[in-house]
Computed example of a mutant assay.
Amino acid sequence: MRDSNTYLYRAMPNTNFCVDVFLKNDIKRGENYKRHWHEQLQLYYFVEGKAILECGHNRFEVSCGNVAVVNSNELHYLESLSDDLEFYVIRIDPTFLFSNQVDLLQTKYFAPLAQNHIAFQNLIENDAQIVDYVTKTIQEYFTKETGYELAIKGSIYQLIVLLMRRYVGKILTKNEFEERARTLKRYEDVFQAIENNYVEKISLKELADSVNISTYHFCRTFKQMTGKTTTEYINGVRLEKAVCFLEQTNLNITEIAQKCGFDSVNYFSRLFRKHYNTSATKFRRTHTGQFST
């Protein structure tokens, strides 16, 4: 099992250059990036396959040619819909854009970005200019010809301009941003409790008590943050575990449903079909070919 902590810190390979680019091609159909968040701004550029991406309360399908923006301090999750999924990740520390001298650009644009007061729309489709600058950034990063750092910085400046002109989803006030960051940190124990106890009956009241708020306020805040009700989120975690059992064990469907916290195999089967658009039995046959029910 992967680390259940939803906060992710990953150091830059080069501490003197606050941009990192890498290719992800190891997430097969039904597998996922766990829900997590971080301070850095990220761009995903999809070159093969399809996936479901959730950013905050937004959920959408992404495919070849799409660019996705993951804002700082935004809870996100990706699930592969194909075995050939490939996408580049561009990680940007907003301080990368800063100069040593405070000027109008820094005050008007880069400081709000670094302080996460500007949130961009997540899905970008059919935008040739965005794709052009993304691919230039990737190419420069891997070829590393003389002056590649300048070329990357120039491309990212152009990307920021286009994002600001076309894809600003919301401009957060300082209080709104601080509240969002506090909420994510406050709910760390909630996400871990769900991850650790998905087999058991999970009480909404106990989850709410763990963050010292009423059940009503807890459910409202949870949905604002994840885009899902608490029950939907818990069932999503259980279905993720079910996929692992289907692929890696010879347990039958009833046994898997029970091991993943479902009291009813019929309820499990309905949810699985709704989420994956196929039955659990067909999913196992397609993805392993080893076990039958």
Rank of each mutant, 00 (worst) to 15 (best):
V265Y: 11
C260V: 04
V190M: 02
G65W: 04
R220S: 15
D103W: 08
E54T: 14
N266Y: 13
L23E: 05
I118E: 03
F283Q: 01
N25P: 00
N277D: 15
N73C: 08
R180D: 02
L184Y: 04
S203W: 02
E195F: 09
R10K: 09
I130C: 08
L271K: 09
S80V: 09
V237M: 11
A193T: 05
V70R: 01
I52L: 14
N277Q: 15
E48V: 01
R166M: 10
E206K: 11
V89L: 07
N16E: 14
Y141K: 01
F98T: 02
H57K: 10
L207V: 01
L251M: 13
R10G: 07
L81I: 07
T137M: 02
R29G: 03
R91V: 05
F142Y: 14
N196I: 03
G65M: 06
T215A: 13
L78S: 09
F87Q: 02
N266M: 13
I90K: 00
H117C: 11
S292M: 10
G289F: 10
D93Q: 03
Q115V: 08
E179T: 14
F17I: 06
A128W: 07
F120Y: 11
K223H: 06
N71S: 13
V69Y: 02
E39I: 04
L41H: 03
T278H: 05
L105A: 13
L78Q: 10
N32P: 07
I256R: 03
L184Q: 05
E195S: 15
H38F: 12
A51C: 14
N14I: 01
V89P: 00
A257N: 04
H57W: 06
C219Y: 06
K223M: 10
L104P: 00
Q158W: 03
E176V: 09
Y157P: 02
K241P: 03
I194K: 01
R35N: 11
Y88I: 00
A181F: 08
Y233I: 02
T249V: 12
S155I: 04
N5P: 01
F142P: 06
Q106A: 07
I160Q: 01
T215Y: 10
K170S: 06
H287L: 14
Q40P: 00
